[in-house]
Computed example of a mutant assay.
Amino acid sequence: MKEVAAELPSTFTTGAARALGVHPRDLYSWRDTGQVIELSRGVFRRADAPVPSFPDFLAVAYRSPTAIVCCASAAAAHELTDELPVAVQIAVPGRARAPRVDYPPTTVYRFDERTFEIGLSRLEAAPGEWVRIYDAPRTVVDLMRLRRRLGEPLAHTALQRYVKQRGAKPALLLEYASALGVHGPMRTALDIASAG
């Protein structure tokens, strides 16, 4: 049985393995014997690598490198909700081709290209491996923008938890809300959350 090539990183794609001379037959043999774990179609992780904190985010990031983790998925990562979404929620620029990811389950939102990178941040999904994610204020604003689709309770819970966090920046919430066209509802919700 052939051992996993030492030069492969903790997480890698079929293409990266081929570039290092790994034959697909060997790659799938490693998967079948448990030496690598298939996170998604064409995305693998070494079994001897540290356990990732967010394996689904990592898988989706390799499948769609320009996507940004958003909405309820970002809220869960930022501890703004106790709800765990059944699908990884990602944003792509409005005219970009939406990635087709069967596993892990993924929901794609199309966001305006002009404001797409407002609040862009990074999250360490596994030791030394980062994914693109919206920061907590952008996440709160997006939940407020999409509250009719994702639910008012989720948006308001996220806002309440955010304003109670150490280092919360209500002014940044309003700045993002203005840029994203939801200043009025955010101002009202923020006034209520701050009064409570």
Rank of each mutant, 00 (worst) to 15 (best):
Y162F: 14
D102S: 14
A98Y: 04
V51Q: 10
L150S: 01
Y103S: 03
V60F: 10
R31F: 05
D112A: 15
H78M: 03
P185S: 05
A91Q: 09
V43G: 00
A177G: 11
A87T: 13
A126M: 05
R114L: 14
H156Y: 13
L172T: 11
A158V: 07
P9W: 03
T11Y: 00
M1D: 09
L180I: 09
L154E: 09
R97A: 09
E38V: 03
L120T: 07
T107C: 07
A17Y: 10
P9S: 09
Y62C: 00
P93A: 11
V163W: 09
P85C: 13
E124M: 05
V141I: 13
A136W: 08
S178R: 15
R31N: 01
T107K: 15
L123R: 12
A6C: 01
S178N: 12
E152N: 06
A87P: 08
P93G: 08
L84T: 12
E152A: 07
P9E: 01
A61W: 06
D142V: 03
K2C: 04
A91R: 12
E117R: 15
P50N: 08
W30T: 10
R138K: 15
V43Q: 02
P65G: 01
A59I: 00
G119H: 08
S64E: 09
R149D: 06
P52S: 04
A179N: 07
L174P: 04
V4N: 01
R110L: 10
A72T: 08
A177I: 04
A19Y: 02
V131K: 07
D48N: 09
S73N: 05
V51T: 13
M186I: 08
R46M: 05
A17F: 09
A126Q: 02
S194L: 15
V36E: 00
I90T: 02
L146K: 12
L190I: 07
H78S: 03
F44T: 00
A76D: 01
P104W: 13
D142N: 14
L146S: 11
V43N: 01
T107L: 15
L80E: 05
T66G: 04
S121G: 03
L172C: 06
A96R: 14
V60P: 02
A17N: 07
K169A: 14
R138Q: 08
G34F: 03
V4D: 00
D142R: 10
E117I: 00
V101N: 06
G15L: 14
V36T: 10
A74K: 05
P85I: 14
H23M: 10
P137Y: 07
R63K: 15
L150Q: 04
T13Q: 06
R132E: 02
A67N: 07
M144P: 00
E117L: 02
L174E: 13
T33Q: 02
T107A: 14
T13M: 02
T188K: 12
T66F: 08
R95D: 13
D26H: 15
R95M: 11
C70K: 04
Y103F: 15
P153R: 11
T106W: 14
T188H: 09
A189Q: 09
L173P: 11
P137A: 08
A74R: 03
A16K: 12
A136E: 05
E83V: 13
Q160S: 15
Y176C: 00
R187W: 06
A59S: 02
P127C: 03
R148Y: 11
P105T: 08
P9R: 04
R100S: 10
V141L: 10
L150R: 07
S29E: 06
A158K: 04
C70M: 08
P105R: 14
H156G: 02
A49T: 00
Y162C: 11
